[in-house]
Design a protein around this nucleic acid. Sequence first.
DNA 1: GCCATGCCTGACCAAATGGTTAGCATGTTG
DNA 2: CAACATGCTAACCATTTGGTCAGGCATGGC
Lengths: 208, 208
Amino acid sequence: MRSAEDDLTARARIRNAALELFGAEGVGRVSLRAVATRAGVSHALVLHHFASKEGLRQACDEYVVSLVRGGPEADLGDTAGLAAMLEAGAAVRRYLGRAFLDGTPQAAALFDEIVEATQRWLEQGVREGRVHPSQDPRARAALYVTWLLAPLAFGEHLARALDVPDVHDMEAMLRFSRAGIEMFTRGVFAGEDALDAWDAIRKERGSR
Amino acid sequence: MRSAEDDLTARARIRNAALELFGAEGVGRVSLRAVATRAGVSHALVLHHFASKEGLRQACDEYVVSLVRGGPEADLGDTAGLAAMLEAGAAVRRYLGRAFLDGTPQAAALFDEIVEATQRWLEQGVREGRVHPSQDPRARAALYVTWLLAPLAFGEHLARALDVPDVHDMEAMLRFSRAGIEMFTRGVFAGEDALDAWDAIRKERGSR
DNA sequence: GCCATGCCTGACCAAATGGTTAGCATGTTG
DNA sequence: CAACATGCTAACCATTTGGTCAGGCATGGC
């Protein structure tokens, strides 16, 4: 791993080091010195390249987001575009999870893009009869994306619940993606009770 | 709000202040001094009561978790137990999201509990015919919980996608919970294609 | 009155932090 | 060769940080 890192420019090495540390500990708990040490450079060089800690953080954001964008946006079909995100290294995933929680502008933009693409994809599916229509396509797309992204934030706990070392072991992914597809295909609830209950609440509130 | 806070013990006031700040900014970026100022006490008192920053953080964890546990665990039916979590103040929600991401022991234990209760509840539903059976009940329960918890981590983005100021406005909750129930009731995909595709991948991998 | 106890603070400390500056190599270009 | 940009560092700085300590100020029991 080190040997693979050695031929990267110092700038890239610093960015990678920051990515790992920020992802693992949270931006606030990581000092520029720690980043520098991990990248094998002086802490002044970090500032030289990124001007400030905030600058470094933004660079990380942009880099990660560009990693996820990767291919053409149009192929965000199914879990495809999202898969790229989930297949990234553990460090990148943790970083992304934090970026979403912190609500950095880049993460927000990325989220919006994904929702947009997903909504188009779902509506395309509706037209082709592969996807059920929804009363509120926008809300469904947003929530759908949220669900697909959820393992980013809860991966560690998911892994523990499934009793695997890492959610992104192929074995684990297969297992819980199966559960996900199952729910997306057949739903969870057998009857319409929950929907009816919701409608009742809606009506009650509407009449107040 | 101040007047409501005034009659709390200083210890509680400090804890609440920490909760808000930690949730909003992340533990690493919040200083004990900032917490003290917000609570209207000296920063020495924070240490006096909680011994260290880590102590304060643990106290927050325990408090938040106790809030969520609230009622008897058995009534974690449907979204009930989870609703408590989602209905908590924005600050508590953000804090929880961070706690899950950071993987604090208390958060991990809470997650495990919820998964356990949810699995029992789902299996009960299966026996009563209200819930579809699953090939892998454990994985389904874990993923289901993850999905219900997802708004904790992505609430801000969800709100933006739905164009509401806060995901927990009643209006917004009704809207996206409807979408969720829709998906949980009817699924998303109309055919079994995705399931078949998964089985194909499974078979291919298994034969390698 | 007086001492004990619990809540609370100001002053202090060593360490760490983000950031600046001057300067050292190492090319590269005229 | 001189001039100059580039990548990099050591030394330094002001500020902030988590944490300690001695003591103030109530309250209440004796």
